[in-house]
Design a protein around this nucleic acid. Sequence first.
DNA 1: GTCTATACAAAGATAGAC
DNA 2: GTCTATCTTTGTATAGAC
Lengths: 201, 201
Amino acid sequence: MTPQPSARERLLDAAEDLAALQGMTSTPVDEILGRARVSPATLYAHFGNKEGLVVEALKRRLARWDSTWQECVDEAVAPEEKLLAVFTALARHRTSLTPSRWCVFLGASAETPAPGNDLADTLASDTRLLVDRLEALSAAYLQGAPAKVLADRITLVYTGVLGMILRGSDAEAAIADGRATAALVIRALAGGDHAESASRP
Amino acid sequence: MTPQPSARERLLDAAEDLAALQGMTSTPVDEILGRARVSPATLYAHFGNKEGLVVEALKRRLARWDSTWQECVDEAVAPEEKLLAVFTALARHRTSLTPSRWCVFLGASAETPAPGNDLADTLASDTRLLVDRLEALSAAYLQGAPAKVLADRITLVYTGVLGMILRGSDAEAAIADGRATAALVIRALAGGDHAESASRP
DNA sequence: GTCTATACAAAGATAGAC
DNA sequence: GTCTATCTTTGTATAGAC
């Protein structure tokens, strides 16, 4: 017999699953409690309130995303492939964990016009991780200021993939489109910056 | 004294403004009523329920976006510029109407895991308008199957811009990044043509 | 640490008068 | 068509026992 996880763990699992599937605000506390088979008092004893629980669940999920992504970066050899690994990681992330409707972090952000400090920090961490790691990988690939530009643009494309999934696109197709687009951006910024100058209005 | 708009109009205005600023689910009916200075019974007499009101407000906003975008397409001359006009339109749209946190349609979608039929249709209309118009403009620019691919990729980039705004990016910067990225995608799929070769057979 | 039972607040919707 | 007043449901959180 597998020993039953603690009430705390069950609550985190349930909160993560339901936030991923339905969104955090859309999920009532009762549903989390029912799924975790835990009583209300236990939740509030451990996490203070609903947002406290969600924040902990999001932090845990971000850590898992972080390590999945890092694995994919490590598996890649060429610098360009290391940059594109974020798309491989997204596909792997989506199949290894509870499937999310699009992105738990963007979803929580969209649902919460006025997040508390802890929640806001956690949501910002997701964006910061994206931009910072992409910038570090870019810097290894091309020198100077363009690294930040490249990181921002890949983040934009990556975010577009997530948004397309929210729009109802097939996830695999959206990821492939994003990857192809990002590859274009990488080559354009690495091969010379003439390609973007004509695009300004 | 400007004649006061009807209660129905005031309700639509209030619902649109608040959905744009805070999101639809996050905004209680009472707040809409307060802003519109209308009583509850009037709302339900006109729209049946909250979702009915929101759907009408979204339809009206979609029609305005549609015409703003079409104007920008018409103002552009070269086919590539017509494709990129969606970014010009986004900037114009955002300054001409009540500023929205990111995108009213994606926001409503993110907030509503199980939308009613009318709402789902309205939200899908937004995506359909994007993909269809971009595909039509693409077809005028390059022949054959790639038109659908190009439309999908520009939609992805455009959606990425909206997501970056949700992430907290400066809107102007995100739009410029998206436009540059889209220009890259267009040229790559057009077969390496430059902007000057606008007159193709 | 965890449970049962319950309090308290917010939100959506309706009744009936004018 | 619009208002005032109210009802119902749902959701968050707490009290007190084990």
